[in-house]
């Protein structure tokens, strides 16, 4: 038995645990990263502001996640979180394509399609997935989103 290897590995393991813990923010700091102020607009699209209307995000934003927020704005806006490591903001300003289609049969419904012409890779250093069985942590994790789609108040998002 090489005692010193065992001791070194044990120390490394304990250090790993401590480092992950120390590198992690507490819940309130984490939540503060995902408040609307932390998202910056990378695309704004003119949309009709009359009547009750529906919006459907028909494309997949994989590998990113997004949340939708209804707010008092005059355009449909795609915003990007500024706290993501790597220059996601500039990358999306240069590479984000958005297209809006109206669905003629409905008269009130719009389909939003978002795409990136260049391939992107996204890595999420996630916590243990098991914590999502608890409502509190599930909601906490759900707060994470690289994108925020802001829609005017007369729009309702189609599930």
């Amino acid at each position: 038995m090489n005692k010193w290897i065992v001791i070194a590995v044990s120390i490394a393991l304990v250090l790993s645990f401590t480092l992950v813990y120390l590198l992690s923010p507490n819940d309130s700091d984490y939540l503060a990263r995902y408040t609307p102020e932390n998202y910056i607009t990378v695309a704004a699209i003119d949309v009709p502001l009359d009547g009750i209307r529906e919006l459907d995000v028909v494309s997949s934003l994989f590998p990113f996640s997004y949340k939708t927020v209804t707010m008092d704005i005059g355009q449909l806006e795609i915003r990007v979180n500024k706290n993501i490591s790597g220059n996601l903001l500039d990358f999306m300003r240069q590479n984000l394509n958005t297209e809006l289609f109206s669905v003629p049969e409905s008269g009130t419904r719009l389909n939003l399609e978002i795409s990136f012409p260049r391939p992107v890779r996204n890595y999420m250093a996630e916590t243990f997935g098991i914590v999502r069985i608890f409502e509190h942590y599930d909601e906490l994790m759900e707060e994470h989103a690289e994108f925020m789609i802001c829609i005017p108040e007369n729009y309702k998002l189609v599930d």
Partner: peptide, 19 residues
Amino acid sequence: AENFFYTWVITKDSFLVGF
């Protein structure tokens, strides 16, 4: 790589509870 991004999605509490 300029097309690579990552996010640290761990909080102290969620890490300890998850562990």
